[in-house]
Nucleic acid binder design. Structure first.
Length: 477
RNA sequence: GGCUCUAUCGUCUAACGGUUAGGACGAGUCCUUCUCAAGGAUUAAAUCCGGGUUCGAUUCCCGGUAGAGUCACCA
């Protein structure tokens, strides 16, 4: 095991290019990156492309784009290189072969003589008998020499394994967890189980951040570390992220979204980063802050405060957090984002505050505009006269109240036609009536033509004095 | 079925044997301009169950229960 006090922290994220990155994968990357940054260490991006069948064209670019969107940068990786290049496992085949041969020489690896069909028969039988399938129960007595066309398996040391996990604590597993797993597949590519151990060794990785499904295969890894005669890095096993609906672990099959879909939906990367960091981590110790910047998260990130239990992905909290991060943005930035989502003719700076308080993410701007909610600021409404009347009020009263409003507003000069002035004038009248709604409702409705809209003062101030009075008169007819 | 992990408000969590079990999201109520939104205030809401250990358990141990993971020539 590495000496924690002197060894540099080296972490890695090692995705396989089998499609997009979802929240679970990103969270693993995030924690590994946070720990490296926290300790002024090194963060490596390594592509585990050893399964050619499952590989999806364009995945690597997509993964890189996802991490970059969030601001997770790596010190070594396929695009930037590094002293342990290459960083794609498909380009490191000779290395794996070298270590495979070492194991063969030690008598700790052997060729698997069975066909997949034969193996399936064993597997089926085990399943029917409700036993776990263990290849080593069928370990051949005189395996053929390995010629590279058959799978190469580890001759595992069957025993109980115990190990330490920096997040989970002391972990252990029974002998049933250890098996003669495949090191090199018949197509010449290594398995994840083999390749990641060699690469972590060569790349001097000191902490392996991983999802919790790897707990079960850890005894196998331990058997391999032993066979190789090497120390293993620290294991940091993260809690699962559970789907919102059920309690199932969130995976692509359960509708986990592409992380870049959140970009398309108009979420801020810093909000997503903040949100993801808080699934399974918190600053702890009475620190109740939840809205944190990237740097603040790095500063307070500690492994002791990483959860063991799984957490659900709660989109409502993400929305809240996104809004909080929007509020942290400089005004010019906010306006820029809002305008980007608005048709050209709607891009009035005065609308920005009105829009801002009604959205949680940028795509909401588009929805608002699409639903016609902003039309009140651009054209006079068709007013339904019956809806103009406040509750049990009468047409006559409504008409005369509107008249009062028109008179008062006409007295405000063009340049003083501000939200504040309009409000004080109108409220003075409203307060003299039986109820404020007697005035405010007809005025608001006359201006907007909608059951629900921003308040009349802001509408009036934006559309201007002439348009306001013309709309009020129009409703009065 | 074997092996393994996990368990505090609906949700995310604080607490590292002693607290009126704290915060946040969401929900409710009230206020702030009639409506919507935003904002402010406020309320309700949890230690899975059963045994130990201890003067004292959310916290430590054991058992149960529930959920999750795994048992691939996938990672």
């Amino acid at each position: 095991m590495q000496d924690k006090n002197t060894a540099k922290v080296v972490t890695r994220f090692a995705p396989s290019p089998t499609g997009f990155l979802h929240v679970g994968g990103v969270r693993t990357a995030l924690f590994a990156w946070l720990w490296a940054r926290k300790n002024n260490g090194i963060f490596i991006l390594r592509i585990e492309d050893t399964d050619k069948k499952r590989e999806v064209e364009g995945s690597i670019d997509h993964i890189i784009a996802s991490l970059k969107w969030l601001g997770i940068e790596w010190d070594e990786g396929p695009d930037v290189g590094g002293k342990h290049a290459p960083y794609k496992q498909s380009e490191r085949l000779d290395t794996y072969k070298k270590y495979a041969n070492i194991l063969i020489e030690k008598g700790l690896a052997y060729a698997d003589p069975y066909t997949p069909e034969e193996l399936n028969v064993f597997r089926k039988k085990a399943e029917e008998e409700k036993r776990p399938f263990l290849y080593r129960n069928h370990r051949p007595e005189n395996p053929p020499a390995w010629d590279g066309t058959k799978p190469l398996r580890l001759k595992s040391n069957v025993k109980k394994y115990k190990w330490h996990d920096v997040i989970r604590g002391e972990l252990e597993a029974g002998e049933e967890a250890v098996d003669d797993f495949v090191l090199i597949k018949s197509d010449g590519y290594p398995t994840y189980n083999f390749a990641h151990i060699i690469d972590d060794l060569l790349m001097e990785v000191t902490y392996i951040f991983r999802a919790d499904e790897f707990i079960s295969s850890t005894p196998n890894f331990l058997a391999l570390y032993e066979a190789l005669g090497i120390e293993h890095p620290q294991f940091a096993t993260l809690p699962p992220i559970l789907g919102e609906a059920g309690t199932k672990k969130l995976g692509k099959r359960d509708g986990a979204k592409d992380i870049l879909d959140y970009e398309k939906d108009g979420y801020l990367p810093q909000a997503m980063l903040n949100f993801l960091a808080f699934i399974g981590w918190n600053p702890g110790a009475g620190d109740n802050r939840e809205v944190l910047t990237k740097d603040e998260i790095i500063k307070s990130f500690e492994l002791e405060h990483v959860q063991k239990a799984g957490g659900k992905f709660n989109e409502e909290k993400l929305d809240w957090l996104n809004k909080e991060h929007i509020k942290l943005l400089p005004p010019a930035e906010i306006e820029k984002h809002i305008f980007e989502n608005l048709p050209e003719s709607y891009r009035n700076p005065k609308l920005v505050p009105v829009i801002l308080e009604r959205i949680t993410k940028w795509s909401d701007v588009k929805s608002m505009a699409g639903a016609g909610e902003l039309d009140v600021f651009f054209k006079g409404p068709d007013v339904d006269k019956t809806k103009l009347i406040y509750k049990k009020s009468t047409a006559e009263k409504t008409k005369s109240n509107l008249e009062l409003a028109i008179k008062a507003l006409e007295n405000i000069t063009e340049e003083n036609f501000t939200k504040e002035n309009i409000k004080s004038v109108l409220m003075a009248i409203a307060d003299s009536l039986e109820s404020r709604g007697e005035l405010l409702h007809p005025v608001r409705y006359a201006l907007s033509g909608r059951d629900q809209s921003p308040d009349p003062f802001i509408i009036a101030s934006i559309i201007g004095k002439d348009e306001t009075i013309s709309r009020l008169k129009n409703a009065q007819k």
